[in-house]
């Protein structure tokens, strides 16, 4: 069984303690989100899990066969066109260029890009289109584990919903496992099976919330109600410092 196991994870940058005693498990098919204020060590945690940073103390055991990462700012290669950007991960896996191009074109169309866009360089794409390309690049390799670093934060509501519904479809079919960090509680409630609340200085988990209703059946009403519930929680109020009156 594929799973991600994080136990007793601590991390420092120099003398600054970033993360303290992080423990959680992520099972196959699950969506786990880590929610917390900006600068609270969320990105560090995600990078440690994705093996982009070396673990210093504690352990991260990742038995997922494949994984990919969608970044907050897209991180497209400026000298490659849309299709070559998407196919990057496929080529790295040793898939023939012709097949990789075909797969990339298919997924690009699925993500709302048009054939006219295929040869464009990132400089000619809008922010939303770049994010579509970045998503397509992460998903075209059919990862069993997907890391998401606030990928929706710079998008308008329409595009956000569009990309989320593609993910929800995949979650529904149990095709994918997601570790997701965000500062947007509503986003987390819409997508997650479990939410971990990360308090800053140093980052540590203060509370967990579980959601059993399948993502497909969660409507706006559910999301609003649960958000309202969560925002009244004492721990959440303290973590996000919501009690400061202006």
């Amino acid at each position: 069984m594929e799973r991600l196991e994080v136990s007793k994870l601590n991390h420092h940058f120099g003398f600054t303690e970033i993360l303290r005693d992080i423990n959680f498990n992520l099972e196959k098919g699950q969506v786990l989100s880590v929610v917390g204020p900006s600068g609270g060590g969320k990105t560090t945690l995600l990078h440690l899990c994705a093996d982009l940073l070396d673990v210093e103390e504690g352990s991260v055991k990742n038995s997922f066969v494949t994984s990919s990462f969608a970044f907050q700012e897209g991180r497209l290669l400026p000298w490659k066109n849309v299709i070559d950007n998407i196919s990057l991960g496929l080529i790295a896996k040793g898939i023939k260029r012709k097949i990789a191009t075909q797969m990339s074109q298919d997924i690009a169309l699925k993500f709302g890009l048009e054939e006219d866009d295929f040869d464009k360089f990132p400089k000619d794409l809008s922010g939303g289109m770049k994010q579509r390309v970045s998503f397509a690049r992460a998903l075209v390799v059919k990862p069993s584990l997907l890391f998401l670093d606030e990928p929706f934060s710079a998008l308008d509501i329409g595009l956000k919903q569009e990309l989320q519904s593609i993910l929800i479809d995949m979650i529904d079919k149990k095709e994918i496992t997601i570790l997701f960090i965000t500062h947007d509680i509503m986003e987390a409630i819409r997508l997650s099976d479990k939410i971990l609340l990360l308090e800053a200085d140093p980052g540590h988990i203060v509370k967990e919330f579980d959601y059993i209703l399948p993502q497909k059946e969660r409507d706006d009403k559910f999301v609003y109600e649960e958000t309202a519930k969560i925002l009244q929680d004492e721990t959440v109020i303290n973590t996000f410092e919501l009690n400061i009156t202006l």
Partner: peptide, 20 residues
Amino acid sequence: NLKEMGESFNLPWHMKFMDI
């Protein structure tokens, strides 16, 4: 940023060099 992206996709060294 781009180096990290390359690592996240496990690009082999020759792709890291040629593409990034």
